[in-house]
Design a protein around this nucleic acid. Structure first.
Lengths: 107, 107
DNA sequence: TTTGTATATTGCAATATTACGATATTAGAT
DNA sequence: ATCTAATATCGTAATATTGCAATATACAAA
């Protein structure tokens, strides 16, 4: 008890929930907005910008990476984090198809 | 420590995160899909359909109601839950505007 | 090769979420 | 009035998430 019963749902439902979960945090929203507005995206800049401790930011970046929403290119001792545009669009389409399919109403 | 530091983020970011959080559960996804495909949407039907206990479903419905994603009309001793189409579209637009604004890339 | 800087990982405390049994509430049926 | 069915609420156990200090790693510069 306590954990989500993923076994009783189908893959699509679990996948959607996972995507929503990654986005369900204001720090991660803020990180995505910040990354997408910058040319050079370094973790330490994000730390200064967002106002959370460096390990916390690093953890959030890891979660964003877990669904390939961002990608990090190593650049010397820094890492340049970028939006993964391809995946970004793919997820937007997936969410829209969820919203479009679930629109039929009963009342 | 432990709870999200909502104070350091702006209203839009927190609002988006809250919406994503409500959607970040396969049971709630399944409930939305089920409700939208039915004409008469009663909680007990949902319990049978989803396979979670009645109090659990009731709690999930409450969370969906908390952002007005669904509305429940009392019908005798039953309650007819329906997608709130207006809010549904509003949220879809909000998410799309987030995805569209955050698309600019650095790499 | 030591030093400094950027980022990741670990471990842990605080808090939130998920699920459900027990119980309450509400309303129609008997 | 009492019974029954549908739904909500309460209380609680299990698990997940958030955030951070401490520490590790990786690399460039001195």
């Amino acid at each position: 008890m306590g954990s989500t019963k993923t076994q009783i749902f189908n893959n699509k439902q679990n996948e959607l929930a996972t995507i929503f979960k990654v986005l369900a945090n204001p720090a991660r929203i803020a990180i995505l907005q910040y990354i997408s507005g910058q040319k050079a995206c370094i973790c330490n800049d994000i730390v200064d910008e967002i106002g959370l401790a460096q390990p916390t930011i690093s953890q959030h970046l890891k979660e964003l990476k877990s669904i390939d929403l961002i990608k990090g290119e190593i650049d010397g001792k820094k890492i340049c984090y970028c939006i993964n545009l391809e995946k970004w669009k793919e997820i937007q389409d997936l969410l829209n198809s969820f919203f479009d399919k679930t629109t039929f109403n009963c009342c």
